Simulated scan of single mutants.
Amino acid sequence: MTTNKVVTHWKGNLQFESDNPSGKMVLMDTSPENGGHNSGLGPKAMMLSSLAGCSGLDVVSILKKMKVPFSDFRIDTYGELTEEHPKYYNKVSVEYHIYGDNLDEVKIKKAVDLSIEKYCGVMEMFRQFSEVKTSIHYHNA
């Protein structure tokens, strides 16, 4: 079993700095209306970024192994927060946007499906507390 450790250190006001097992640092803060300075990423928004990043890494790795060419790849992730505290994402939408010439839609769909259904652990975590919808958008040049 793998255990990851992250150390998060208060930097003053509502700002925190958190490390990563790779040694990289991320700054977190909140908006001025919540008492922060918008000097870092919001923790809940980072969750959406983690979801997109996890799945994106899978999709790109699979497409490279399948030798599927593409020129650009973007993931738009939307999270709907509950009204009551503690507020959490109860609905999430993940939109995969793939760009290129003569895109192989069958292989791209397979790569995305493998990430969604098998490989992306963050996607599986989100499914524990949220309704997750996904879509693929092909942008042929």
Rank of each mutant, 00 (worst) to 15 (best):
N13Q: 14
V92N: 02
S50D: 04
Y96I: 15
L14R: 05
K67E: 01
S71V: 13
L51F: 01
N20A: 09
N90V: 11
T134Q: 07
F70Q: 00
N20L: 10
E33I: 14
S39L: 15
A45G: 07
T134N: 07
E131R: 14
S71W: 08
V112G: 04
Y96S: 02
I98T: 02
G36A: 12
L48S: 02
K24W: 12
I98H: 01
E84P: 01
D72L: 07
S61K: 03
M28S: 11
A45V: 11
E105V: 15
F73N: 01
L81H: 11
T8M: 10
S55V: 04
I108L: 07
P32F: 08
S61W: 00
K110P: 02
Y89I: 11
V68F: 02
A111R: 07
Y89A: 05
M66G: 01
T3Y: 00
D113I: 08
E124Y: 08
V60P: 00
C120F: 07
M123N: 04
T82Y: 12
L63C: 03
K107P: 03
V68A: 01
E105C: 13
M125A: 12
G56P: 02
Y96V: 13
N102T: 12
K24E: 09
G79D: 05
G53Q: 04
L51P: 05
V92Q: 02
V92A: 06
K107S: 05
H139E: 09
H37Y: 11
T77M: 07
G53M: 08
H37W: 04
I98M: 05
D19Q: 08
H97K: 15
R74P: 00
S18I: 08
K5Q: 08
T134S: 12
G42N: 09
S115N: 13
F129K: 14
A111K: 10
P32H: 05
K87I: 10
